[in-house]
Protein backbone atom coordinates (compact mmCIF):
# COMPACT_ATOMS: atom_id res chain seq x y z
CA UNK A 1 0.00 0.00 0.00
CA UNK A 2 2.83 2.39 0.73
CA UNK A 3 3.71 4.86 -1.96
CA UNK A 4 7.06 4.42 -3.64
CA UNK A 5 9.66 6.79 -2.20
CA UNK A 6 11.00 7.59 -5.65
CA UNK A 7 8.82 8.42 -8.63
CA UNK A 8 9.30 9.09 -12.32
CA UNK A 9 6.33 11.44 -12.68
CA UNK A 10 3.75 13.25 -10.58
CA UNK A 11 1.09 10.94 -12.03
CA UNK A 12 2.56 8.11 -9.95
CA UNK A 13 1.68 10.01 -6.78
CA UNK A 14 -2.07 9.54 -7.36
CA UNK A 15 -3.92 7.13 -5.06
CA UNK A 16 -2.89 4.99 -2.12
CA UNK A 17 -4.18 7.66 0.26
CA UNK A 18 -4.21 7.16 4.04
CA UNK A 19 -7.28 6.14 6.02
CA UNK A 20 -7.61 7.78 9.43
CA UNK A 21 -9.84 6.88 12.35
CA UNK A 22 -11.96 9.75 13.70
CA UNK A 23 -11.75 9.21 17.46
CA UNK A 24 -12.88 12.61 18.69
CA UNK A 25 -15.86 13.71 16.61
CA UNK A 26 -17.19 10.13 16.77
CA UNK A 27 -16.78 9.68 20.54
CA UNK A 28 -20.57 9.60 21.10
CA UNK A 29 -20.74 6.27 19.27
CA UNK A 30 -17.87 4.19 20.73
CA UNK A 31 -19.23 0.99 19.17
CA UNK A 32 -18.71 2.33 15.65
CA UNK A 33 -15.33 2.89 14.06
CA UNK A 34 -15.54 5.89 11.72
CA UNK A 35 -12.76 6.17 9.15
CA UNK A 36 -11.98 8.99 6.77
CA UNK A 37 -10.01 8.44 3.57
CA UNK A 38 -7.73 11.41 3.08
CA UNK A 39 -8.08 12.11 -0.61
CA UNK A 40 -6.47 15.53 -0.22
CA UNK A 41 -3.19 13.64 -0.03
CA UNK A 42 -3.34 13.23 -3.80
CA UNK A 43 -0.87 15.55 -5.59
CA UNK A 44 -3.60 17.91 -6.83
CA UNK A 45 -5.02 18.10 -3.33
CA UNK A 46 -8.31 16.34 -3.97
CA UNK A 47 -10.17 13.14 -4.75
CA UNK A 48 -10.53 14.42 -8.33
CA UNK A 49 -6.98 13.43 -9.22
CA UNK A 50 -8.20 9.86 -9.57
CA UNK A 51 -10.96 10.34 -12.16
CA UNK A 52 -9.07 13.09 -14.01
CA UNK A 53 -6.01 10.90 -14.48
CA UNK A 54 -8.08 7.82 -15.37
CA UNK A 55 -10.10 9.78 -17.95
CA UNK A 56 -6.90 11.11 -19.52
CA UNK A 57 -5.02 7.80 -19.56
CA UNK A 58 -8.00 5.87 -20.97
CA UNK A 59 -8.50 8.51 -23.68
CA UNK A 60 -4.79 8.56 -24.57
CA UNK A 61 -4.77 4.80 -24.80
CA UNK A 62 -7.68 4.55 -27.24
CA UNK A 63 -6.74 7.67 -29.22
CA UNK A 64 -9.53 10.07 -28.20
CA UNK A 65 -6.95 12.42 -26.64
CA UNK A 66 -4.02 13.34 -28.84
CA UNK A 67 -1.38 16.07 -28.72
CA UNK A 68 -3.17 18.11 -31.39
CA UNK A 69 -6.40 18.26 -29.38
CA UNK A 70 -7.28 20.32 -26.34
CA UNK A 71 -8.80 18.54 -23.37
CA UNK A 72 -11.88 20.53 -22.32
CA UNK A 73 -14.35 20.09 -19.47
CA UNK A 74 -16.71 22.00 -17.21
CA UNK A 75 -15.27 22.22 -13.73
CA UNK A 76 -15.24 24.84 -11.00
CA UNK A 77 -12.23 23.53 -9.23
CA UNK A 78 -10.65 20.30 -8.23
CA UNK A 79 -11.10 18.36 -11.46
CA UNK A 80 -9.67 21.35 -13.28
CA UNK A 81 -6.64 21.44 -11.00
CA UNK A 82 -6.09 17.74 -11.65
CA UNK A 83 -6.42 18.04 -15.45
CA UNK A 84 -4.04 20.99 -15.36
CA UNK A 85 -1.37 19.11 -13.41
CA UNK A 86 -1.54 15.93 -15.47
CA UNK A 87 -1.89 17.87 -18.72
CA UNK A 88 1.34 19.68 -17.89
CA UNK A 89 3.09 16.50 -16.77
CA UNK A 90 1.95 14.39 -19.73
CA UNK A 91 2.19 17.15 -22.35
CA UNK A 92 -1.46 17.78 -23.28
CA UNK A 93 -3.25 21.14 -23.57
CA UNK A 94 -6.16 21.81 -21.22
CA UNK A 95 -9.11 24.27 -21.32
CA UNK A 96 -11.64 24.62 -18.51
CA UNK A 97 -15.14 26.13 -18.50
CA UNK A 98 -16.17 27.51 -15.11
CA UNK A 99 -18.74 29.94 -13.71
CA UNK A 100 -17.29 33.47 -13.62
CA UNK A 101 -17.83 33.75 -9.87
CA UNK A 102 -15.24 31.20 -8.79
CA UNK A 103 -12.61 32.79 -6.59
CA UNK A 104 -9.49 34.38 -8.02
CA UNK A 105 -7.43 31.71 -6.25
CA UNK A 106 -9.23 29.01 -8.25
CA UNK A 107 -8.48 30.79 -11.46
CA UNK A 108 -4.84 31.31 -10.49
CA UNK A 109 -4.18 27.68 -9.49
CA UNK A 110 -5.16 26.23 -12.85
CA UNK A 111 -3.63 29.04 -14.89
CA UNK A 112 -0.30 28.40 -13.17
CA UNK A 113 -0.09 25.14 -15.14
CA UNK A 114 -0.74 26.87 -18.44
CA UNK A 115 -4.43 25.99 -18.61
CA UNK A 116 -6.85 28.16 -20.63
CA UNK A 117 -9.93 29.38 -18.73
CA UNK A 118 -13.35 30.07 -20.27
CA UNK A 119 -16.03 31.68 -18.08
CA UNK A 120 -19.77 31.03 -18.04
CA UNK A 121 -22.65 32.99 -16.44
CA UNK A 122 -22.26 33.05 -12.61
CA UNK A 123 -26.04 32.94 -12.12
CA UNK A 124 -26.22 29.62 -13.97
CA UNK A 125 -23.73 27.90 -11.63
CA UNK A 126 -22.09 24.64 -12.67
CA UNK A 127 -24.94 23.63 -14.95
CA UNK A 128 -24.33 26.81 -16.94
CA UNK A 129 -20.68 25.81 -17.32
CA UNK A 130 -21.74 22.37 -18.56
CA UNK A 131 -24.09 23.91 -21.16
CA UNK A 132 -21.47 26.41 -22.31
CA UNK A 133 -18.85 23.66 -22.60
CA UNK A 134 -21.20 21.52 -24.69
CA UNK A 135 -21.80 24.44 -27.06
CA UNK A 136 -18.07 25.02 -27.52
CA UNK A 137 -17.47 21.35 -28.27
CA UNK A 138 -20.43 21.19 -30.68
CA UNK A 139 -19.04 24.23 -32.56
CA UNK A 140 -15.44 22.88 -32.62
CA UNK A 141 -15.63 19.08 -32.66
CA UNK A 142 -12.12 18.60 -34.07
CA UNK A 143 -10.44 21.07 -31.75
CA UNK A 144 -11.42 19.50 -28.45
CA UNK A 145 -11.40 16.22 -26.58
CA UNK A 146 -14.42 16.64 -24.31
CA UNK A 147 -13.47 14.65 -21.21
CA UNK A 148 -16.98 15.13 -19.73
CA UNK A 149 -16.57 13.97 -16.14
CA UNK A 150 -20.37 13.70 -15.77
CA UNK A 151 -20.68 11.18 -18.57
CA UNK A 152 -17.26 9.50 -18.79
CA UNK A 153 -17.23 5.90 -17.46
CA UNK A 154 -13.51 6.27 -16.66
CA UNK A 155 -14.60 8.54 -13.78
CA UNK A 156 -16.33 5.83 -11.69
CA UNK A 157 -13.81 3.29 -13.00
CA UNK A 158 -11.03 5.19 -11.20
CA UNK A 159 -12.88 4.64 -7.94
CA UNK A 160 -13.76 1.04 -8.71
CA UNK A 161 -10.11 0.21 -9.41
CA UNK A 162 -8.56 2.57 -6.85
CA UNK A 163 -10.59 4.04 -3.99
CA UNK A 164 -12.90 1.06 -3.46
CA UNK A 165 -10.14 -1.53 -3.58
CA UNK A 166 -7.93 0.54 -1.27
CA UNK A 167 -10.72 0.84 1.32
CA UNK A 168 -11.08 -2.95 1.40
CA UNK A 169 -7.32 -3.36 1.68
CA UNK A 170 -7.13 -0.81 4.50
CA UNK A 171 -10.04 -1.86 6.73
CA UNK A 172 -10.39 -5.45 5.60
CA UNK A 173 -13.60 -7.19 6.50
CA UNK A 174 -14.43 -4.68 9.24
CA UNK A 175 -16.34 -2.23 7.06
CA UNK A 176 -20.13 -2.37 7.38
CA UNK A 177 -21.10 0.99 5.81
CA UNK A 178 -19.75 3.38 3.21
CA UNK A 179 -21.18 6.85 2.69
CA UNK A 180 -20.25 9.75 0.44
CA UNK A 181 -21.87 12.80 -1.11
CA UNK A 182 -22.92 12.94 -4.75
CA UNK A 183 -21.27 15.37 -7.15
CA UNK A 184 -20.57 13.79 -10.51
CA UNK A 185 -21.41 10.63 -8.49
CA UNK A 186 -18.17 9.02 -9.70
CA UNK A 187 -16.89 8.20 -6.22
CA UNK A 188 -20.23 6.77 -5.08
CA UNK A 189 -20.76 4.70 -8.24
CA UNK A 190 -17.24 3.29 -8.48
CA UNK A 191 -16.66 2.56 -4.80
CA UNK A 192 -20.13 1.04 -4.42
CA UNK A 193 -19.61 -1.32 -7.36
CA UNK A 194 -16.37 -2.55 -5.82
CA UNK A 195 -17.74 -2.87 -2.28
CA UNK A 196 -20.83 -4.71 -3.52
CA UNK A 197 -18.51 -7.40 -4.90
CA UNK A 198 -17.27 -8.13 -1.39
CA UNK A 199 -18.28 -11.50 0.05
CA UNK A 200 -20.35 -9.90 2.83
CA UNK A 201 -22.90 -7.15 2.23
CA UNK A 202 -21.56 -3.62 2.75
CA UNK A 203 -24.26 -0.93 2.93
CA UNK A 204 -23.42 1.90 0.53
CA UNK A 205 -25.23 5.17 1.18
CA UNK A 206 -25.40 8.27 -1.02
CA UNK A 207 -25.72 11.73 0.56
CA UNK A 208 -27.11 14.84 -1.13
CA UNK A 209 -27.57 18.48 -0.12
CA UNK A 210 -30.96 18.91 1.55
CA UNK A 211 -31.89 21.92 -0.58
CA UNK A 212 -31.50 23.13 -4.16
CA UNK A 213 -29.71 26.31 -3.05
CA UNK A 214 -26.91 24.99 -0.88
CA UNK A 215 -23.35 25.70 0.14
CA UNK A 216 -21.79 22.25 -0.10
CA UNK A 217 -19.40 22.87 -2.94
CA UNK A 218 -18.85 19.88 -5.14
CA UNK A 219 -22.11 18.20 -4.19
CA UNK A 220 -25.25 18.15 -6.31
CA UNK A 221 -28.90 18.39 -5.37
CA UNK A 222 -29.93 15.91 -8.04
CA UNK A 223 -33.62 16.86 -8.29
CA UNK A 224 -32.71 20.40 -9.38
CA UNK A 225 -29.55 19.65 -11.39
CA UNK A 226 -28.53 18.24 -14.74
CA UNK A 227 -28.29 14.60 -13.63
CA UNK A 228 -24.90 13.08 -14.55
CA UNK A 229 -25.17 10.23 -17.03
CA UNK A 230 -22.83 8.08 -14.94
CA UNK A 231 -25.27 8.36 -12.02
CA UNK A 232 -27.42 5.29 -11.32
CA UNK A 233 -29.90 6.25 -8.64
CA UNK A 234 -30.71 2.59 -7.98
CA UNK A 235 -27.15 1.55 -7.17
CA UNK A 236 -26.80 2.95 -3.62
CA UNK A 237 -28.50 0.89 -0.90
CA UNK A 238 -29.87 4.07 0.64
CA UNK A 239 -30.11 7.82 0.10
CA UNK A 240 -29.87 10.55 2.73
CA UNK A 241 -29.63 14.34 2.87
CA UNK A 242 -27.30 16.71 4.68
CA UNK A 243 -28.06 20.39 5.37
CA UNK A 244 -25.42 22.94 4.41
CA UNK A 245 -25.11 24.07 8.02
CA UNK A 246 -24.45 20.47 9.19
CA UNK A 247 -21.62 20.12 6.69
CA UNK A 248 -20.10 23.50 7.54
CA UNK A 249 -20.33 22.92 11.29
CA UNK A 250 -18.72 19.49 10.97
CA UNK A 251 -15.91 20.94 8.86
CA UNK A 252 -15.24 23.38 11.73
CA UNK A 253 -15.28 20.56 14.30
CA UNK A 254 -12.92 18.38 12.25
CA UNK A 255 -10.35 21.17 12.24
CA UNK A 256 -10.62 21.88 15.95
CA UNK A 257 -11.11 18.35 17.28
CA UNK A 258 -9.18 16.20 14.81
CA UNK A 259 -6.63 18.56 13.28
CA UNK A 260 -8.20 18.03 9.87
CA UNK A 261 -9.02 21.26 8.05
CA UNK A 262 -11.23 20.04 5.21
CA UNK A 263 -13.65 21.32 2.59
CA UNK A 264 -17.39 21.50 3.22
CA UNK A 265 -18.14 18.40 1.17
CA UNK A 266 -15.87 16.43 3.52
CA UNK A 267 -17.71 18.02 6.44
CA UNK A 268 -21.00 16.86 4.92
CA UNK A 269 -19.59 13.35 4.41
CA UNK A 270 -18.50 13.07 8.04
CA UNK A 271 -21.82 14.53 9.24
CA UNK A 272 -23.55 11.79 7.22
CA UNK A 273 -21.19 9.12 8.58
CA UNK A 274 -21.95 10.18 12.16
CA UNK A 275 -25.70 10.04 11.53
CA UNK A 276 -25.23 6.47 10.33
CA UNK A 277 -23.02 5.66 13.33
CA UNK A 278 -25.68 6.95 15.67
CA UNK A 279 -28.26 4.74 14.02
CA UNK A 280 -26.25 1.51 13.89
CA UNK A 281 -24.32 1.84 17.21
CA UNK A 282 -22.11 -1.13 16.18
CA UNK A 283 -20.04 -1.36 13.03
CA UNK A 284 -17.53 0.47 10.87
CA UNK A 285 -18.32 3.44 8.62
CA UNK A 286 -15.95 4.73 5.95
CA UNK A 287 -16.25 8.07 4.18
CA UNK A 288 -14.17 10.41 2.04
CA UNK A 289 -12.25 13.64 2.71
CA UNK A 290 -12.56 15.13 -0.78
CA UNK A 291 -10.19 18.05 -0.28
CA UNK A 292 -8.72 20.49 2.23
CA UNK A 293 -10.34 23.59 3.67
CA UNK A 294 -7.69 25.98 2.45
CA UNK A 295 -9.13 25.63 -1.04
CA UNK A 296 -12.17 27.54 0.22
CA UNK A 297 -10.75 30.51 2.07
CA UNK A 298 -13.05 33.46 1.42
CA UNK A 299 -11.80 35.88 -1.18
CA UNK A 300 -10.54 39.24 0.00
CA UNK A 301 -12.75 42.28 -0.34
CA UNK A 302 -10.99 43.54 -3.45
CA UNK A 303 -11.88 40.28 -5.14
CA UNK A 304 -15.54 40.72 -4.22
CA UNK A 305 -16.34 43.03 -7.09
CA UNK A 306 -18.14 41.57 -10.05
CA UNK A 307 -18.99 42.94 -13.44
CA UNK A 308 -22.11 41.05 -14.44
Amino acid sequence: MARPARMNSIVEAVGNTPLIRLRNVARETPGVKVYLKLEYMNPGGSVKDRPALQMMLDAIQDGRLTKDKILIDATSGNTGVAYSIFGAALGYRVALVMPGNVSQARKDITQAYGTELIFSDPMEQSDGAIRHCRELVADNPDKYFYSDQYRNPSNPRAHYLGTGQEILDQVGDEITHFVTGLGTSGTMMGVTRRLHEHSRKIECIAAQPAEALHGLEGLKHMASSIVPEIYDEGLPDEHMTVATEEGWDMADRLAIEEGLHLGHSAGANVAAALKIAERIQQGCVVTIACDRGDRYFAPMRWEKHYDW
Partner: peptide
Protein backbone atom coordinates in the same frame (compact mmCIF):
# COMPACT_ATOMS: atom_id res chain seq x y z
CA UNK B 1 -30.86 49.14 -7.99
CA UNK B 2 -30.19 45.52 -8.88
CA UNK B 3 -30.06 42.97 -6.09
CA UNK B 4 -28.36 39.68 -7.01
CA UNK B 5 -28.69 36.47 -5.04
CA UNK B 6 -25.65 34.30 -5.69
CA UNK B 7 -24.76 31.02 -4.01
CA UNK B 8 -21.37 31.23 -2.31
CA UNK B 9 -20.22 28.34 -4.45
CA UNK B 10 -20.19 27.31 -8.03
CA UNK B 11 -21.57 23.87 -7.13
CA UNK B 12 -20.10 20.71 -8.64
CA UNK B 13 -16.45 20.24 -9.29
Amino acid sequence: DAISIVPAIAGGH
